[in-house]
Design a protein around this nucleic acid. Structure first.
Lengths: 206, 206
DNA sequence: TTGACAAGTGAACAGGCGTTCACTAAACTC
DNA sequence: GAGTTTAGTGAACGCCTGTTCACTTGTCAA
């Protein structure tokens, strides 16, 4: 934290951050006074005034209208926009359709990696159909709202089973190809559906 | 969002989330009323009462004392602690030592994936030394503060050049092996240094 | 048609809240 | 030693805020 601050200013700034983090909204002047041992709200008023002049907080008129400056909010986790994307299932069996009952976890993704819509989700990969490139246990980020181009990696539903394959459209059929040569091409015409494009991957070692 | 909510409840919940996200503190009853077009704060009071009974918000006494329930804060960005980890360079050439002048970007990582210390960083991979498993352009998360075990993936410095290899220690030497069989093993004894273990990987397609 | 119920109006109220003013005390400057 | 600055006290003021009460309107079931 900024070393130019004196003990009182650090104390107040810390109390602001703690209250906002734990309670969800900023404290009142009297709550700050009580925390610091002040018997007057005037002392709080002047300290907040100087903190605002230093650019460390912003204030509006009204009760509890204190906001920490952006440079202080980094501690709470977000330097730039991040969305928490749900992990909704696995991609070798079962229905990978996002449903709120099935959210197993959420993972952070930079907002600029995501499309505008809010339907992206993660699936955990099972099996080795994509050879070494996409391994069992990897989490693939699926964008269901985009046109898929040739040779891109997609999640496809074939007879109620979801798999990760490369997408090769042809005249009246589609070839779904594994990167692993041990798996034969799957040729489909009607009885399948492209769930979405794999637009990112997260792997955790060990 | 929960489908049991009617339009008004969704509207109010959305306004709460938006105000908290953009302004840093919750709105007053009258601000909610103005947003919804109410001419009485009583309507707001009753809606908030029902939302609280549904467990979607929590309230204390006092002005602006509204907090979204934990299950709704996911939308505003943080379900669980996330740290922004710096991307400090590339891993085929140059010095991948974290220095704040060289931070190119920051990427979100769940805190529970990270060690307690704050020295983790990302490197962008160049070349195909790890075959398909780690591809050019992938971002590897490096943990410099951990003992490396046999066959784990590490970032190693060999004569001022950083590479990603698997780590095989032997009696008085170390073998650094590529997953790609086209690359020969590198046998080193003294003139190298393990920068850290690769503990995660992020890949962005296209 | 009646009754119950949810949704909203309008006004009044009491307490919480930020502001303001006058004052004290210690520390620092010239 | 006089003057200034910084930090805090204490009380009063007035607006803002959440609450409450009585009332209206529309919907739906019996």
């Amino acid at each position: 934290m900024n070393p130019e601050l004196n003990a009182r200013q650090k104390e107040i700034l810390g109390f602001l951050a703690q209250t906002i983090r734990e309670r969800g909204f900023p404290p009142t002047f009297r709550e700050i006074a009580e925390h610091c041992g002040f018997r007057s709200t005037q002392a709080v008023s002047r300290h907040l005034e100087t903190l605002e002049k230093m650019g460390l907080i912003h204030r509006e008129s009204g009760a509890r209208s204190i906001r920490l400056a952006a440079c202080l909010q980094e501690e709470s986790g977000r330097t730039r926009p991040v969305r928490m994307i749900p992990l909704v299932g696995e991609v070798a069996a079962g229905r990978p359709i996002p449903a709120f009952e099935e959210i197993e976890d959420r993972l952070p993704v930079p907002e600029e990696w995501l499309p505008a819509h809010e339907r992206s989700f993660f699936l955990k990969v099972r099996g080795d159909s994509m050879a070494e490139g996409i391994q069992a246990g990897d989490l693939v980020l699926v964008d269901p709202g985009v046109r898929v181009h040739r040779a891109e990696v997609v999640v496809a539903m074939i007879e109620d089973e979801a798999t990760v394959k490369r997408f090769y459209p042809e005249a009246d059929r589609v070839i779904l190809r594994s990167d692993n040569p041990a798996y034969a091409d799957i040729v489909v015409s009607r009885d399948f559906r492209v769930v979405g494009r794999v637009c990112a991957l997260i792997r955790k070692y060990r």
